[in-house]
Design a protein around this nucleic acid. Structure first.
Lengths: 323, 323
DNA sequence: CCGCCCGAGTTAAACGTTTCACTGTGAGTT
DNA sequence: AACTCACAGTGAAACGTTTAACTCGGGCGG
């Protein structure tokens, strides 16, 4: 219809070779008239390049992950990449299956938040062939690949420090699953800070990854034990669980118990007592991850890097200043 | 390596023709040894079938949408479909661009939550060719396409009814953007219920789409006007805005003012006074949407259907019972 | 004026599947 | 015994791009 060869059409849309404005316009007009669109399947099959990155997250319930995905999707769209998001539902078997399906796309790269500390076998096998960036839940031994994490130890330390500065000496930690590396690090951060200041070690209560059951577990624990003067929650779901448990036990924040939340969302400020919380720099995590992935895709052969970003404490009103 | 033809390999993996267990096993063994995987691009190119459905949502910040996506992704994976999620970032231009990119995948179907009342042109053009289900933000009801929505009028009515039953006669509505069809319907529902019971019409305050500025607008309105005894929020952001405004004005819920929120998020129960709220049946929305899409993909030629699901009022403690 | 080069466009061969039409083989039927 | 049929497997032609190798002219230096 435009009176040109197939190759010219390809050149117009891919921009690989210069086409005179005249022809280019004719091709575009024809394309519009026929609502023609480059077929990704054919394009990908022939070129081997996919313009696709796979993103694996443990679930869509934690706002941390959805925010991450949201940002990555934006960054990708800006450079005409498509994102394929899969969720492992916090299950290693599902993770393997989804990852397998993901590989069928022949993605240019993968951004993965593993469901557990152990990197999926499927992914480990691809380390050499495929740009892969591990985010957040990264175990100790993953030095063969780029990682982006938050300095969880410092985050825990900072939260504890604030509490100690406010005179608290009896601290409890509401942990989700202490086996996860980031959680471990946060707990160690709190513990190390307490130790450095000669304060008794914090008690750790594991409440799981579900808000409802977490609230119950924590509530029971509060009933059965002497109350600490402050609680540090290790994730945003545990923050919610702590909030629920305290509300049900009619324990005022911060008068009865102080609370430091993890992650920083709008609902935390929409309360009579806005929450003091540890904010993870989600956008920055996404940005650094994306930048690293792109440079790998473009062939960078640098040694694997462990990017560690700083979390910051947002001081608001949920921590009491003790005499 | 398995000593069979390419066609047989295809048959083994697609299951379109029977292959003797003997050969099938040999093919599978070889595949494992070579870590062979069917190339989606080639498969799709040749067959024209994509085993992909596109999902368009306005954003990833609203749990309503992420929950929807999460559920759809699960349903899809169960039948070996892949989901490609794109976000319009509540912007019509972005929406058009993302939709365009989506079409390049030649998806088998599309599930879309439009960013505005107007169905994207790109989508409208495909109504005849491609199974499309519109969800939630659906404008006019004369569309030639399947829709899945919540009965927003009834949802508004039910919220109002609960307030009236509790003795409230002075109701304000915190609306986001009254131009959106679902918001309109909710407001009408409240107004119609009030009218039916001979109660003064509710006042509507538009607080916009942003939590912070919404809280300010609502706070100023509360300062300048005689307080209603109850507020119904029309979206989750307005719920948050109302919560912030009331907290800043030191207006206790429900003693000073009662509040009904919209959408049912976990944080709504994690408070001293858990929020009474209108819950949309997200899983059911996803299930019905998926079922409808699958039947369309399988060639159902029924007339377009408007599936309307019921929202339910979750009565908790944020509405005062007046004398 | 000749030869060369360069840029713009075209030709045609892949890419890795799916699928239609085909071959052979063995069982069932007359 | 001859025929038919079902069944399992194979051969080979697409699918719609990308891309290397090519053609064709016009401009330029010698």
């Amino acid at each position: 219809m435009a009176g040109v060869s197939i190759a010219t059409v390809s050149n117009v849309f891919s921009g690989r070779k210069v086409v005179t404005p005249e022809l280019s316009a004719r091709v575009n007009d024809a394309a519009r008239a026929l609502s023609y669109q480059v077929d990704r399947a054919a394009s990908q099959l022939k070129s081997g390049r996919a313009q696709v990155v796979g993103v694996l997250v443990p679930n869509f319930n934690d706002t941390f992950f959805t925010s991450l995905v949201s940002r990555i999707e934006q960054l990708a769209a800006a450079v005409a990449y498509q994102v394929i998001v899969v969720s492992s539902q916090d299950d290693e078997a599902v993770e393997a299956a989804r990852l397998d399906a993901l590989m069928g796309w022949r993605p240019s790269g993968i951004i993965a938040v593993p469901a557990t500390n152990t990197v999926p076998q499927l992914l480990r096998r691809e380390f050499a062939n495929l740009p892969i960036i591990l985010v957040d839940r990264v175990g100790q031994d993953d030095l063969a690949v780029d990682t982006v994490t938050v300095d969880n130890h410092a985050a825990g330390w900072e939260a504890a420090q604030h509490l100690l500065d406010c005179g608290h000496r009896s601290i409890a930690i509401a942990s989700s699953v202490s086996a996860f590396r980031p959680i471990q690090d946060r707990i160690r951060g709190v513990a190390d800070c307490c130790a450095a200041r000669g304060v008794p070690a914090p008690r750790v209560i594991e409440v799981g990854i579900n808000h409802e059951s977490g609230a119950e577990i924590l509530g029971e624990w509060l009933n059965a034990n002497q109350h600490p003067t402050a609680i540090i929650a290790m994730t945003n779901v545990t923050t919610l669980a702590a909030l629920s448990a305290l509300a049900r036990g009619s324990l005022e924040i911060p008068d009865a118990i102080s609370l430091i939340g993890f992650d920083d969302y709008t609902w935390m400020t929409a309360r009579k007592v806005p929450l003091t919380a540890v904010r993870q720099p989600i956008d920055q995590i996404a940005d650094r991850t994306w930048a690293r992935l792109m440079s790998r895709i473009q062939g960078s052969a640098e040694l694997p890097e462990s990017i560690v970003l700083a979390a910051t404490l947002q001081v608001r009103s949920s921590v009491a200043r003790l005499a």
